[in-house]
């Protein structure tokens, strides 16, 4: 009696487990279908303008006015790319932009992370005040401080140290270097804020262990906190690089006569078409589409590379995450 009862019990449990498994797998399939639909839908919305840009970039003038041409041109051409490459001085402009963006991103990453750690883990008088100023520095529209900064770097006297009229720092990297190492470059307040949030979200155990082992705050910062925050660091670097790469508000102030991509892309149409450039709107579209894609392309490559990095970095840093 007892035997058979337990046997049926086991059988029942086994059956219910099987049923549950089946329903879980059905649920999983439904979930993945739903996910696919959502991901594809959103991707479509994002890619649509880009595909449009690409199709225009390989069109000729005739295709632009042809009503029967929608995405695939009748006379595809690489001429727009050839013109953009030539008139944007692409290799030189690319190299200069790359140098500048790499330097700016590196310096800003270092300074903002350093400052952020101070805000995240130390209690000092006036902390709230200074942090409010970080946020304030973010909110100030670039237009507001653009003109005074321009004049400052045009006649740079280092606040009285160099006799007037001072040095002309425009068209050098110096305006970028000094604002980047002092964490006041483009949107640096956001980077400080992001890294502070990251550090605050990290458990204190590791730091405390480091202190107990006799490490000072600097050593703890460089050897414990920085390796633990790699996903955040990668994101900050990426943002700093991208925003420097295609910024045109500050670069037209500081680097007006330099061969860099944003300035040469902006002047591409007028460079190719000469005085008549405003009379040929379709030519402008063709050139801007090709040139724009040539400016964006390196960023996509960079992202594809770094993106793998921050997936892996998570697995590497096990404890702090």
């Amino acid at each position: 009696m007892v035997h058979t009862a337990s046997d049926t019990n086991i059988e029942l449990t086994l059956r219910s487990i099987k049923q549950r498994r089946r329903s879980i797998s059905a649920q999983a399939i439904a979930m993945s279908v739903l996910r696919a639909v959502i991901v594809i839908g959103i991707s479509y919305v994002i890619l649509f303008p880009l595909i449009g840009k690409f199709s225009i970039s390989i069109m000729t003038r005739a295709d632009m006015w042809d009503q029967t041409v929608s995405f695939i041109p009748k006379y595809p051409t690489l001429n727009n790319y050839r013109l953009a490459y030539e008139f944007m001085k692409y290799p030189q402009a690319f190299f200069n932009s790359f140098k500048l963006a790499l330097m700016v991103a590196g310096l800003q990453l270092a300074s903002c992370t350093f400052v952020a750690y101070g805000f995240a883990r130390f209690n000092f008088i006036g902390k709230g005040f200074w942090f409010a100023l970080v946020i304030l520095s973010l909110v100030i529209p670039p237009e507001m401080i653009g003109t005074p900064l321009y004049l400052n770097f045009r006649f740079f006297t280092a606040w009285g140290l160099i006799p007037s009229p001072g040095l002309n720092l425009l068209n050098t990297f110096w305006p970028y270097i000094v604002t980047s190492i002092t964490a006041t470059g483009l949107r640096n307040g956001l980077f400080i804020y992001m890294m502070r949030q990251f550090f605050m979200g990290m458990p204190k155990d590791l730091e405390e262990a480091a202190y107990v082992d006799g490490a000072g705050p600097f050593r703890t910062f460089f050897q414990v906190m920085v390796p633990g925050a790699i996903p955040g660091l990668v994101v900050v670097f990426l943002f700093a690089f991208v925003w420097q790469w295609n910024d045109y508000q500050l670069i037209t102030l500081y680097m007006k006569n330099q061969v860099v991509l944003p300035i040469y892309l902006d002047g591409l149409a007028s460079a190719v078409l000469g005085d008549q450039w405003q009379r040929a709107p379709e030519e402008i579209s063709l050139l801007n589409s090709a040139g724009g894609l040539m400016v964006i392309a390196p960023l996509l490559v960079l992202y594809a590379v770094l993106q793998r990095q921050f997936v892996e970095s998570v697995e590497r840093t096990g404890i702090v995450g």
Partner: peptide
Amino acid sequence: FIFPFIIGFILF
């Protein structure tokens, strides 16, 4: 730690 920002904020 926050010294770089203090300088930068005042000057720039």
